[in-house]
Structures are given as structure tokens and as C-alpha cells.
Amino acid sequence: MQPWTKEEFVGLMHQLAVSEAPRLFAIVEEYGEAEDARVAGYGLAYADRAEVDGVEGGFRLSSKSAESARSLFEISSRSSGTRQAHVVWLG
């Protein structure tokens, strides 16, 4: 005897995928006192880590969290005039 009908199992798989999906975020760099901003990267936040790709290509970052990634972006971009980096949650 099967514990699930085909439709029930499809529904279960969908619920599982939705509940464990990573959260999408952007790292946005702020210039001046709210004078300008740009998206520096997009990332996926998983339960145990965050993965970020730079929008200009060739840059990929793994960190403990979206906030850790934000800190690293902020530190690395200070020389280019970035005042602050922000995590912006999408979706």
C-alpha cells in the first residue's frame, strides 16, 4: 500500500521545495549621504551560508550569512568611495 497518492506526493514535494528555498537578496552600495547607489551583487541565503555573485562578473563570494557578505562588500569597496553597503531582501 502506498502512503501517498501521486497528487499528494507532488504537493508534498512542492511544500518541501518552498519551505527550504533560499532567500534572494541584493548587496546595494551607497555613495555619499544617500546621494547615489548601485547593486553590487545578488545572493542566495541558505540556512547555513550565503552565496553572492558580483554583477560585474568574475566575482563570487561564500560567507556565513548575508550580513557577513555585506560586511565584506563594504570593506572591499571603501576605496572606491562607497559609504555603506546594505542587504536588500527581494521577493
Rank of each mutant, 00 (worst) to 15 (best):
S19L: 08
P22V: 01
G32T: 06
Q84G: 10
M13P: 04
E8K: 02
A66M: 11
R23N: 01
Y46C: 02
R38Q: 14
E35M: 15
W89A: 07
A69V: 05
E7M: 05
H14Y: 01
E33F: 13
G41K: 13
D53K: 10
G81Y: 00
Q84E: 14
S77C: 12
E8I: 01
S68G: 14
L61C: 07
A37W: 15
L24H: 00
T5R: 06
A34T: 13
Y31V: 14
A69I: 02
E51G: 04
R78V: 08
A66H: 09
R49L: 08
V87D: 10
I27A: 05
G11M: 02
Q2Y: 01
W4F: 06
E51R: 12
E7L: 04
F73W: 13
D53I: 10
Q84V: 02
G43R: 13
I75H: 10
M1H: 05
E20H: 14
V55L: 15
K6Q: 13
A50E: 08
D36L: 10
G57N: 05
L24F: 02
F59L: 04
A40Q: 05
M13I: 15
A45D: 04
H86R: 15
D48W: 02
A37I: 12
S62C: 10
S65R: 11
A50P: 09
L61Y: 09
G41H: 08
S76N: 14
F9G: 00
W89T: 08
F25C: 05
R60V: 07
L12E: 04
W4I: 01
W4T: 01
V52N: 05
F59A: 06
L44P: 01
S19E: 11
E7T: 07
D36P: 02
A17E: 11
H14S: 12
G43T: 07
G43C: 09
V18S: 04
L12K: 14
T5K: 00
G11P: 03
V87G: 09
M13R: 13
F25L: 00
F9K: 03
